[in-house]
């Protein structure tokens, strides 16, 4: 397979890697760029576990060609925390027991971050809509929705 050089921003770090033509972004992120936070679930663009933000918009990295992100910015769960300080979403997920087996959590966090970046004060229905592309088999979704609303409130400086 021909390799192609690309460069992009990965969570504030500039990355330059050779990617296989036709290789899925998730494989290059995990094996080549060394970011293991996007999770590979169904590998067919359905479960949402691999969700990353490309220029702020959530994408399924398992069905995105790596070569298409040249020059773009990618955000993953690996860049959410600021040093020792967890992102408000991560903190709310922990406090609200929004993860059980944790496999969907990474994708849920990125879907939620895209929502809150665009709409800091979402309604419950908007949260449901935002995570409707992400499957969770453990929690029954309710604690995840609650955690995203709690994080939104905290980021807005409101009491939960």
């Amino acid at each position: 397979m021909t390799k192609k050089p690309i460069s992009f921003m990965l969570n504030d770090a500039e990355i330059g890697i050779f990617v296989g033509e036709g290789a899925p972004l998730i494989d290059e992120l995990r094996r080549n760029a060394g970011d293991l936070t996007p999770k590979q679930g169904c590998n067919q663009g359905t479960c949402g576990a691999c969700t990353v933000l490309i220029d702020g918009v959530p994408h399924l990295s398992c069905i995105t060609l790596a070569e298409t992100v040249d020059g773009k910015r990618i955000d993953t769960t690996g860049g959410l925390a600021g040093g020792p300080n967890l992102h408000a979403l991560q903190d709310a997920f922990i406090q609200g027991f929004a993860a059980q087996c944790g496999f969907c959590t990474s994708g849920m966090l990125m879907a939620a971050k895209a929502l809150l970046d665009a709409n800091p004060n979402p309604s419950r229905d908007q949260v449901i809509e935002a995570i409707s592309g992400n499957l969770c088999r453990c929690t029954g979704y309710e604690p995840i929705v609650d955690a995203i609303l709690a994080a939104a409130a905290r980021l807005q400086g409101r009491a939960v």
């Binding site: 169904c42 067919q44 359905t46 499957l135 929705v145």
Partner: peptide, 17 residues
């Protein structure tokens, strides 16, 4: 046949419990 069409309740069908 797969995850695409295997029906499960999503976050919009949460049942208050």
């Amino acid at each position: 046949e797969d995850f695409n069409t295997y029906l499960q309740p999503g976050p919009g069908q949460i049942v208050p419990h």
